[in-house]
Amino acid sequence: MSSPVLNAQAPLLAPDAGAYRQAFRRTAASIWVITAAHGAQRTGLTATSVVSLSAAPAELMVSVQPGSSTFPLLQASGRFGVNLLTRTQQAIADRFAGRDGCQGEARYAQADWHCTPNGVWLLSDAAVAMNCEVAEIVWRRTHALVIGRISALRLAEGPCLPLLHSDGRYVELATR
């Protein structure tokens, strides 16, 4: 497979919303499921915008739309789960993205979840599962940047290939 060639003579585009989205669609990103629960309610979302912030203390950041069904529960409880999906878990990614119309509790069907003592839902067979406490929420334009302090994490045993998304579709790593 050949690499695309950048045409140095092509005009630079204004960073409007369409060009911006196209630029970031071209990256390969890991697929994460963010879970949130408060009281008797639980829901979650699929995200590619999870970023490591610090190893000591262990913190991460996830970008969340405040209008999502997940954000109010995350904000009210002050905690959330972060689950890295493997390449065999596309159906979970689709369910938490709402592609099949599932909402709330229904998104947890057809997968094995467990609840931590502090009420965070983690996917039992995730490549990585992290229990996070909200350390800070930074409001920026259309999103809330949720900084989470990782209070506990679990790594799957053995090698696991993450589920990746690029250019609007799932992709796999090429191995050498």
Rank of each mutant, 00 (worst) to 15 (best):
G81K: 09
G81A: 02
V82T: 05
N83S: 05
N83D: 08
L84V: 08
L85Y: 04
T86P: 12
R87G: 01
R87N: 12
R87A: 05
T88Y: 13
Q90M: 13
A91M: 03
A91W: 07
A91S: 11
A93K: 10
A93S: 11
A93L: 10
F96H: 03
A97H: 04
G98C: 13
R99P: 03
D100V: 07
D100E: 14
C102G: 13
C102L: 15
Q103G: 09
G104C: 06
G104D: 12
G104L: 15
E105W: 06
E105K: 09
E105S: 05
R107H: 15
Q110T: 07
Q110F: 14
D112H: 09
W113T: 02
C115P: 06
N118G: 02
N118C: 02
G119D: 00
G119P: 09
G119K: 04
V120P: 12
V120T: 03
W121T: 10
W121D: 05
L122S: 01
L123E: 00
L123K: 03
S124P: 12
S124K: 15
D125Y: 10
A126R: 08
A127D: 01
V128F: 14
A129I: 06
M130R: 10
M130A: 00
N131L: 04
E133C: 07
A135K: 11
A135W: 07
A135Y: 06
I137H: 02
V138W: 10
R141P: 05
R141L: 05
R141V: 08
T142D: 00
T142C: 02
T142M: 04
